[in-house]
Write a protein that binds this DNA or RNA. Structure first.
Lengths: 148, 148
DNA sequence: ATAAGTGTACTATATATGTTAGTACACTTA
DNA sequence: TAAGTGTACTAACATATATAGTACACTTAT
């Protein structure tokens, strides 16, 4: 279920989906790496609504990451609406957002502009950029719909 | 030349261009905010090649930010190729990159995919996203060319 | 009721990062 | 020589990150 060396670990859900890729050399905090991994699995539809996530203790055991660190990741994800938590039962994938979160969207637009601006400055072409964007859109799951 | 309250400052270059918007409430480190501001001015063409940036001491004075923090921002920007430094003279806007930095581009693609993925998940439309992207491209300065 | 498995809430400790403060030195320009 | 550059340190402090350990509340199944 788990494979790792000194610096990186890959953790699987249901024995199949690689849910987490942790790189201890990566300056990004571990709890952020966990958040990013789970967000991506939800966004791409690899984890479906109401599906149960590994428990804090289980994931901590299997990855040798401290339970407090896992808990922080889950707490953040719940605050951001990606998962919901039921005490005594566990953590589950939240339904896709029904309300438009304009604040978050503006924040993401800001990141988008920065990223695209630098890509253009580095000499990347509009075609290349648009292709990456369209591919990312087609691999995401909007409004709880299915994909591909 | 400077306007600020307790939590945010705006610093100007040549008395006109707002070069830096620092928000002390922002969890993003100050030196990162400085880097982002200067990168954006270079990418959008507001600062031109070989143009001199404010000296470390001057900017530190005017913003009440510690010189060490400014220095860190400049050092990073030089390492990333956005500016060049001449001891005894100052910091200047570097020429646009001639070599393709595939590693950086892949990193930016990764950020792009994450951002676009979440936007799609939040229910934003392909049209909206593409429009933001195209607008960002048109406001950037590729290959040292002029703009608009 | 009990046991096992959940999440939650603490305290404490160690380490890394960010920021400020101060000093000294080398280089450039006038 | 003086003034203005960048550079390189040390020191101190605050905050963030991660681990360790403990205790408690809730849920499910027995």
């Amino acid at each position: 279920m788990v494979a790792f060396n000194t610096t990186s670990k890959t953790y699987h859900v249901k024995g199949v989906i690689p849910i987490i890729a942790i790189d201890l050399r990566n300056p990004k905090p571990i709890y952020e790496q966990i958040k990013d991994s789970i967000k991506e699995l939800i966004i791409t539809g690899a984890l479906k609504q109401d599906e149960q996530l590994p428990s804090i203790r289980e994931m901590a055991q299997d990855t040798s990451i401290n339970p407090n660190t896992i808990q922080k990741a889950y707490k953040d994800l719940e605050a951001e609406g990606f998962i919901y938590t039921v005490t005594g039962r566990g953590n589950f994938v939240a339904p896709p957002p029904q309300q438009v979160d304009s604040k978050r969207i503006e924040k993401l637009y800001s990141i988008l502009r920065e990223t695209v601006g630098e890509l253009t400055y580095l000499g990347d072409s509009e075609n290349n950029i648009i292709n990456v964007v369209k591919s990312a859109i087609s691999h995401s799951v909007p409004q709880g719909g299915s994909k591909q």
